[in-house]
Design a binder for these strands. Structure first.
Lengths: 329, 329
DNA sequence: GTGGCCGATGTATTCGATATCATGGGGTGA
DNA sequence: TCACCCCATGATATCGAATACATCGGCCAC
């Protein structure tokens, strides 16, 4: 910067102004400075600027599984909003490891970023709550009752209810649930929706039809095979995400069953692959892109200390009926 | 930091030393400082440290498509190596937009990160070359002849040759190619391997059997339908990545054809989904995790200005024979 | 006993950009 | 004509941590 100042024969202060507040310097000076910048290939040091201004224009987005394209879609929405407002998104993958989540929180506390969004958190929710008292934090896809941290999600209870009821309406009574991991709020909500729907049936809710998965393919594969050893065996299964649903289909097939004829399957999320798969997956569609957009809007508002009207945003979901449930469309 | 210094009754210099070079301060002082740090919940300001030390311990990884789990696997390898050496990975998604690639390069030039890895670059390779003269840059998955930028990849020519020859050995003669986009080096290499194999057949290479895709599902779907209108139509297709291969299978099926009976399909990459799909995809397996590890090792070595023995690393690939090619295993 | 060295610590400067305050010239209105 | 204001610009302090250099006390060897 000093070099630029020397070359254009002004002070460093003027160089700084020419770059950040062009209207504050005379046109001639501005042009002289710009030429010098060009000639020297000068790029302002982001670190120094951040230090002085006490803001980095970086936001951290923590995702639990970079493999799962559900998050990819959300991130698209977040990036579009962030870039439009001149923020950079730093994606951080935790592979569902709370340790790594903590390490990213340390980055935030070291002030290397201005705020943070969690797409499902594995660390203690009380910890998040406490963290959000000091720094801008938003939850995407997930919320917790009584938490003051702003959040964006769908109504998971109702969505799971809808999915289960769809299977009931197709005539199924023995409907299994392959849920997400126990500790996660999402899982609790989806279990609740499933339970509500099942309790309305004649046969009611059966605990042995319920399994806790990991959200990964392998757990869908393995758990459906467990469930299919029950007698009488389930005729349908609702899986808490699409990846497990695909695992379940392949697991059932490996045992010689046909989907949807012998086993109806409903997933959750509507990842791009759900419609590419064979049979195409019936699933609950989350508005992924909008979740991303809204989450980022909230986060940036928090960072700018703007007032936030709605702290808990609930977006609409939709049942996508395809082939894996056996419905005639 | 001043507060910590005041509370533990030492100077800020000693606080700094106690945290970064514990052996330089006496045990008693160190403990006093640590207690104060704990009490005040002090976290060193990462920005200030970076400015003073002129390094951020961040590395940028630019990926073209966050949806494609091929990159997800590579990133796993990169993250593991980076974290082990106390570096944070900033993932940047470009959605194949050169503009966004440039915007991330600006972040690097603003010194917000210590180095950068590209997983396939869309900007001009001469530009990358020039960039890499000034800052640490590494290419993952891709290399360019004559480029001095370090790179890690497989032998794409040979891999494409192997895939095509496999189809030839299964008796196919009219083998189509759905390639990647024209500008990308990968595409050129895979085309070359395909051409070499086809030229060894009796019927030889036919240009009308070759299409340029986008690496996305839709282009596989659309281009196979174009190709299937040819007469005589191809009996097999080699796709330059798995996503397009799945698109091609679905496209062929939409026309009433069976895979592999009426059309044999071979993909490229071996993304996790390739083996989950139905029929399971025959494909070229890239050692994704190792590509990630090696790329990050190279990048960190560059950052530390360590001497680099091999600037162009070529890792082994493997043909995974599954169902989509119709081979009897 | 004294010179020299080492370990522990404090003081002051530095990193690069920006914000604040100061300055000076030119224009405007009374 | 003079007071006032505004605009363009320069000088300088500042952000928070790291570090070069200075200081001081204690210990050892000659």
């Amino acid at each position: 910067m000093k070099e630029v100042a020397a070359l254009s024969e002004v002070s460093t202060a003027t160089v700084s102004r020419a770059l950040r507040y062009p209207h504050l310097v005379s046109p001639e000076t501005r042009i002289r400075v710009m030429e010098a910048v060009e000639r020297l290939q000068y790029r302002p040091n982001h670190i120094a600027r951040s230090l002085r201004r006490n803001e980095s224009h970086f936001v951290i987005v923590v995702m639990p599984d970079i493999n799962n394209s559900f998050f990819a879609q959300i991130i698209r929405g977040m990036e579009d909003v962030a870039h439009a407002q001149d923020y950079q998104v730093l994606l951080c993958n935790t592979d569902n490891d709370p340790e790594r989540e903590l390490s990213y929180i340390k980055v935030l506390q070291g002030r290397a970023a201005d705020g943070m969004a969690f797409l499902t958190a594995r660390v203690d929710s009380a910890y998040i709550e406490q963290l959000s008292q000091h720094v801008p934090v938003v939850l995407g896809c997930e919320y917790a009752e009584g938490l003051s941290t702003p959040s964006v999600s769908i109504d998971n209870v109702h969505a799971a209810f809808t999915a289960t009821r769809h299977l009931i309406q197709l005539g199924h009574r023995r409907i299994a649930l392959i849920n997400g991991p126990k500790g996660v709020i999402l899982s609790q909500d989806r279990l609740q929706g499933y339970s509500q729907a099942m309790q309305q049936t004649t046969s009611g809710l059966e605990c042995r039809m319920i399994r806790d998965g990991t959200f990964y393919y392998e757990s869908g594969f393995r758990l459906i095979q467990e469930l299919l050893t029950l007698s009488p065996r389930p005729t349908a299964v609702f899986c808490a995400n699409d990846e497990m649903a695909i695992g379940a289909i392949n697991g059932a097939r490996a045992l010689g069953l046909r989907v949807p004829e012998d086993l109806a399957v409903v997933g959750f999320d509507n990842i791009p692959f759900a419609s590419m798969y064979n049979p195409a997956l019936t699933t609950i569609a989350q508005p992924m892109y909008e979740i991303g957009e809204t989450t980022m809007h909230l986060l940036l508002a928090l960072i700018r200390k703007e007032p936030i009207s709605i702290r808990k945003v609930v977006l609409p979901h939709r049942l996508m009926v395809r082939q894996s449930c056996g419905a005639k469309c």
